[in-house]
Simulated assay, not measured.
Amino acid sequence: MEQLSKDVVKVYVWELPVRIFHWINAGAIMLLILTGLYIGKPIVGSTTGEEAYYTFLMGWVRYIHFFAAFLFTANMIFRLYWVFKGNSFVTTNVLRLAFWKEIFQTVKFYLLMKNRKPHYTGHNPLAQLTYLVLMGGGSIVAMFTGFYLYFEPQPESFFGKLFAWVPFLFGGSFSVRSWHHLMAWVFIIFIVIHVYLSFREDWLEKNGTMSSIFTGFKTEKKDKVETHGGEIQPMAGAAQKDAEHE
């Protein structure tokens, strides 16, 4: 633990695998959104005036989309594993009554109302629930609908049969595409809110929220971290953990 002053310490919040996951996820989602919107409504066509296969623009966009989709899926599977492997800042327990009470207090805090929101070194309960619903549930919908559309032309293949149930849950092929497209806009809205709240948290709390996703550390008052069960990781120990993860 690096004690910056009598009452302020640096807390090792985001382990190296979490930080790597975050940036891979961010990159994959941006590629998926940009290429997906183009696939749905091409805004640029061939500039040669020849047959489409001479430039293969849509083909390359689709290849990038598919690559990002598989990368996104593998990354999410790893994140699910790290829920059980990682420190206390990457876990969520929605079965606690206190979790839902604290969500209510956090909503009041963001609405600038009187509240009793505790201090959180990691994600607050509202952020945890948002990640669980959007990055968890939303990602599942996007992945299943996407893989169905990818293997739809080969219904007799192994993967075609594996995802054959998707239309029964989301409707026919057009409805599946609509759900997949809707998830893209859900992620776009989420990104805007996520970036805004991250900067807002950093500005109000002065705790290094933005830099922590690069370094892993936040600056916190020692009594608040200890009160809420945060893991105060020594600087040397944190560096050693990062080295072990590499």
Results as ranks from 00 to 15, higher is better:
181 H>V: 07
209 T>N: 15
207 N>G: 07
221 K>Q: 15
218 K>P: 02
20 I>L: 13
213 I>P: 05
47 T>P: 03
233 Q>L: 12
234 P>E: 06
165 W>H: 08
191 I>M: 12
183 M>L: 15
227 T>A: 09
58 M>I: 13
243 A>M: 14
15 E>Q: 12
130 T>V: 09
120 Y>E: 01
44 V>D: 12
233 Q>D: 05
1 M>A: 14
64 I>C: 11
5 S>E: 14
44 V>Y: 14
2 E>G: 05
76 M>S: 04
160 G>F: 00
12 Y>A: 01
97 L>Q: 14
17 P>E: 04
37 L>N: 02
45 G>S: 11
128 Q>Y: 06
179 W>A: 02
22 H>I: 05
237 G>W: 06
231 E>Y: 08
179 W>P: 03
104 F>H: 01
24 I>S: 04
189 I>M: 06
39 I>Q: 12
80 L>I: 15
171 G>Y: 03
34 L>F: 15
164 A>V: 11
56 F>K: 11
239 A>F: 02
196 Y>D: 02
110 Y>F: 13
67 F>Y: 13
240 Q>D: 13
148 Y>S: 09
205 E>T: 07
51 E>W: 15
244 E>W: 10
76 M>T: 07
239 A>T: 00
207 N>H: 06
222 K>R: 11
233 Q>V: 14
212 S>D: 04
27 G>H: 01
75 N>M: 04
41 K>T: 12
136 G>V: 05
106 T>A: 03
199 F>R: 12
64 I>N: 03
122 G>A: 14
34 L>Y: 10
181 H>I: 10
118 P>W: 01
232 I>M: 07
175 S>N: 15
100 W>F: 05
160 G>A: 04
32 L>M: 15
88 S>T: 13
93 N>Y: 11
77 I>S: 02
129 L>K: 05
117 K>L: 06
42 P>Y: 07
136 G>Q: 02
181 H>T: 04
141 V>N: 09
157 S>D: 15
72 F>K: 03
99 F>R: 02
40 G>P: 01
96 R>Q: 14
98 A>I: 10
4 L>G: 08
128 Q>P: 05
227 T>P: 00
56 F>Y: 14
223 D>W: 13
25 N>W: 05
8 V>D: 06
143 M>K: 08
139 S>L: 11
178 S>Y: 00
208 G>C: 04
207 N>V: 06
122 G>T: 00
24 I>Q: 07
181 H>W: 09
196 Y>A: 08
34 L>H: 09
194 H>Q: 02
220 E>G: 05
81 Y>H: 05
27 G>E: 08
189 I>G: 05
85 K>P: 07
177 R>K: 15
43 I>T: 14
116 R>K: 13
79 R>F: 09
138 G>E: 08
129 L>R: 03
234 P>Q: 09
54 Y>Q: 13
34 L>Q: 08
184 A>V: 10
158 F>Y: 14
115 N>H: 08
92 T>S: 15
9 V>H: 06
168 F>L: 10
206 K>N: 12
154 Q>A: 09
48 T>V: 06
240 Q>C: 01
165 W>V: 01
165 W>Q: 12
103 I>S: 05
119 H>N: 05
119 H>I: 11
235 M>I: 13
180 H>K: 01
63 Y>L: 15
59 G>I: 06
184 A>D: 02
8 V>E: 08
77 I>P: 00
78 F>L: 10
20 I>K: 01
179 W>N: 03
206 K>C: 13
178 S>T: 11
121 T>D: 00
96 R>D: 15
116 R>W: 06
114 K>W: 12
